[in-house]
């Protein structure tokens, strides 16, 4: 258990460090929420001064951070000037929407990558392997941005898939199976893009690990015992190769978050990415910090889950932490 506990403490320290970093940088930025109102010809300078004061722009950075941190410990991550709601509320919905893309994408990507990677390793250097490697390399070097734009173009041209947002109009009146279908239809293109952006990395790693495991003595022994090929690959070799792959899970989430940002912005999916971009441009202080913190948290959660899995699957780690 000490292993898990130390990971947790580690994560918390990271978060604090990041919040200080983000807050400091942000406080140095010029411009603020009130400046936008200025162009309205119907507002007097006194009003503006009062607004500045009301939003606390005149306090020192340290005071503002102290206030913010104190509140954060009570679960209050500050207030969005632009939306006039607590940051927590704003982020909550957006994180849920981002997860709605990333979780299915992760699952699908692994489901696609495992058989391809395993087969490609089994058929090492034969035409199957070469074909996979060719397709994989092409995907690997194609920027997510380009994949997103091409799919957007495709969706617009064909009209098969709705683009933009998450639900159609009239979503509320639907019964829940229709609702699921509606969301699935909207999510289809972004999820496909995300899957395409992480699958090549997964396949590469799975193939490499499998190739290595296939060369280990126990596989040769098993093969000599005449265990059928398919059963050997998926029941014996793959589980043995699992450990390094579990660590990869955490890493793939990090990749996915980056790809999700671009995809969400290009496809106008109401997730964390568009919110971050919008609040960065609006200098919505607390939302930016919140968004960076939350994405860090998501990433750390991914790492933590893979640690947990590792802990469960690898007796070596368990004994080490017990001792």
């Amino acid at each position: 258990m000490r292993f898990l506990f130390s990971r947790l403490v580690h994560g918390i320290f990271l978060l604090i460090g990041i919040s200080v970093l983000a807050f400091l940088l942000f406080a140095l930025a010029p411009g603020d929420y009130v400046s936008e109102i200025r162009l309205n010809p119907q507002i007097s300078p006194e009003t503006l001064v009062a607004l500045r004061h009301q939003y606390g722009f005149d306090d020192s950075i340290a005071v503002r951070y102290a206030h913010w941190l104190g509140a954060a410990l009570h679960g209050d991550f500050g207030f969005s000037f632009a939306y006039n709601v607590p940051v927590t509320r704003l982020l909550g919905d957006r994180v849920a929407n981002t997860l709605l893309l990333t979780l299915p994408a992760t699952l699908l990507a692994w489901l696609v990558a495992i058989p391809i990677g395993v087969i490609s390793a089994a058929k090492q250097n034969r035409w199957e392997d070469r074909a996979v490697s060719l397709g994989n390399t092409t995907l690997l070097i194609t920027p997510d941005l380009l994949i997103s734009l091409s799919f957007l173009w495709f969706a617009l041209r064909t009209g098969y898939f709705p683009v933009g947002s998450m639900t159609s109009l009239g979503y509320e009146e639907m019964r829940w199976p229709e609702k699921l279908k509606d969301i699935a239809l909207h999510a289809a293109i972004p999820i496909t893009v995300l899957v395409l952006s992480i699958v090549p990395v997964l396949i590469r790693h799975i193939r490499a690990t499998m190739v290595e495991t296939l060369q280990s003595p126990f596989v040769r022994a098993a093969r000599a015992h005449g265990i059928p090929r398919g059963r050997l690959l998926f029941r014996h070799v793959f589980p043995a190769a699992l450990n390094p792959l579990i660590s990869l899970l955490g890493l793939s989430i990090a990749n996915l978050l980056g790809a999700a940002l671009i995809t969400e912005i290009v496809m106008s999916w109401p997730g964390l990415g568009p919110l971050l971009l919008e609040s960065v441009l609006a200098r919505d202080l607390y939302v930016v910090i919140g968004a960076v913190l939350v994405s860090t948290l998501l990433l750390q959660a991914g790492v933590f889950i893979s640690d947990l899995l590792l802990f469960a699957s690898d007796p070596r780690i368990r004994t080490k932490s017990a001792g």
């Binding site: 990041i18 940088l25 978050l257 930016v288």
Partner: peptide, 16 residues
């Protein structure tokens, strides 16, 4: 530990 594209975006906006 930072989702670096998020950080990059945020930091870019802080700077002039």
């Amino acid at each position: 530990a930072l989702p670096w594209i998020y950080l990059l975006l945020a930091v870019r906006a802080f700077l002039p």
